[in-house]
Amino acid sequence: MNRKIAVIGGGAAGLEASSALTSLGFRVVLVEKEDETGGHIKNWHALFPNRRPGVEVLDALRSKLGSDVELFSGKTVTEIKPVNDRFELSSADGWKTEADAVLLTTGFSLFNARKKEEYGYGIYDNVITSAELESAFSTGKIAMKSGEQPKRIGFVHCVGSRDEKVGNIYCSKVCCVTAVKQAIEIKQYLPDCEVFCFYMDMRMFGRHYEELYKEAQEKYYIQFIRGRLSESTEDHTGKIILKVEDTLLGKPLKIGVDMLVLMVGMEPAEITKNLGTQLGLVSDSDRFLVSTDQHISANISEIPGLFFAGTCTGPKNIADTLADARSAALAIAGYFDNNHNKS
């Protein structure tokens, strides 16, 4: 009988791992808490660096799921119990299943921008998050609350990242390049709109990212100001006044924008934290789950038969998440090979 693997979370990592596991001969139970698989990608209009539609990647991932994957959606797994080399899983609504191994692909949540009180999210009308802008791109309507088109937009990098004040010391990796991508898209929708990015460091780590950054400067005249936003306020005309330091000139700078986009970072998803606690897994000060070895066995947990893939172990882009998912599938295969050899 084929071994059965429970994959918890049907986002990019869960989908890719499920198809990889079936191609290795496993049966897969994929459990998704929402009604639909796809995780964050399904809310993402276009992906960096090439601005391809998010749905393209999602369709490809979903189409690879064969009949050996049994999908349960709308189920939030609340308990995973190791019992005699196997696992018993149950969800909040009483659903249960068993598996020979479990792969956590529970992912991340977006940082709650309200926590940066001084940025005025939820208070000033035209302060939005990068996720909300992405939704606006899907509808094709970029407008201020008044319905008017913005003439100047500011992007703030590192909202909820590299910020110990909100408990997140780490870099979320994807926000810099997302800001550049979204800034370009704004210029494509609204060519007359001025766009400013406020950054601490431009972390263009991936392939074609630096090129995208250069394109933003060269082709779209997007301005990059090195300085972190300290506070924003609405003025009497409804404009949002930003205070940053132009760190490269060594002077404080004040600028008004019609719309402010907060590049919200990644935090471990609630379910990642809950299952981690329930299983007694180690998490780091960043609250992401910890593997037995960051380099050599990144997908392997302290509990035999329990594995990780994707952003439950820290921020990743889609390509890295998919690679991590396939790597987890191999780690699971290796686990059973070893167990088999022993017996």
């Binding site: 309200r114 009180e117 999210y121 939820g122 208070i123 000033y124 009308d125």
Partner: peptide, 10 residues
Amino acid sequence: MKHEGKKLVW
């Protein structure tokens, strides 16, 4: 300005 947002902070 959203007064409700300030109330949440308060």
